[in-house]
Structure formats: C-alpha cells, structure tokens
C-alpha cells in the first residue's frame, strides 16, 4: 500500500492531490492513518499502532480501516497494486 507521489496531509487535515487538483479534508484518525501509510507501514502495523493508542477493538477497527482504504482507492490517492 503506497500513497501516490507528492501527497501529504497538512496539520489542519487538508489534503491536496497535485495530480488531480482535488482537495480533501480528513479527521484526526484519518490523518494518522495516511501518515502511517506514507511511512510505509503495512495494514497490520497500522492496526497495531492505532490500537496501542486508542480504545478500539480490532474487529471494529478492521472494518473501519477496510472502508477507509477503499475510499482512498476510490479517490485515487493510492498507487495501484499489482496482485
């Protein structure tokens, strides 16, 4: 899982995609996940890192994370993965 080039989230939770010219707003949790993705973390590492810090069960988090990553794909913010 890799973010497209030149994509970064500001401290305010504002994400500008220079490829498409689109802008997005992210809440704190979403900002953290995007940061972890940009650091090259795997899904499992992201899950562990969030569960260490926040009060959330892994099954629920898995659901939210799947949904969120699907949205990142939908918004074309992630590199296409070769299966």
């Amino acid at each position: 899982m890799k973010l497209k080039k030149n994509i970064a989230v500001s401290e305010n939770g504002f994400l500008f995609d220079p490829h498409s010219g689109e802008s997005y707003s992210l809440n704190k949790t979403a900002q953290l996940i995007v940061k972890l993705i940009s650091e090259g973390k795997t899904e499992v590492e992201i899950m562990n890192s969030i569960m260490k810090k926040y009060d959330v069960e892994s099954s629920a988090l898995q659901r939210y994370l799947d949904d969120f990553i699907m949205m990142l794909h939908q918004m074309n913010l992630l590199e296409k993965e070769d299966n």
């Binding site: 689109e22 802008s23 809440n27 939210y64 994370l65 918004m75």
Partner: peptide, 11 residues
C-alpha cells in the same frame, strides 16, 4: 484515547 472512525471528505 477515545477512538473516532477515520473520515475523508472531498472538498
């Protein structure tokens, strides 16, 4: 910390 679901919205 209290958890909130991740949300991304198109502006």
């Amino acid at each position: 910390l209290k958890f909130e679901r991740p949300v991304i919205n198109h502006i």
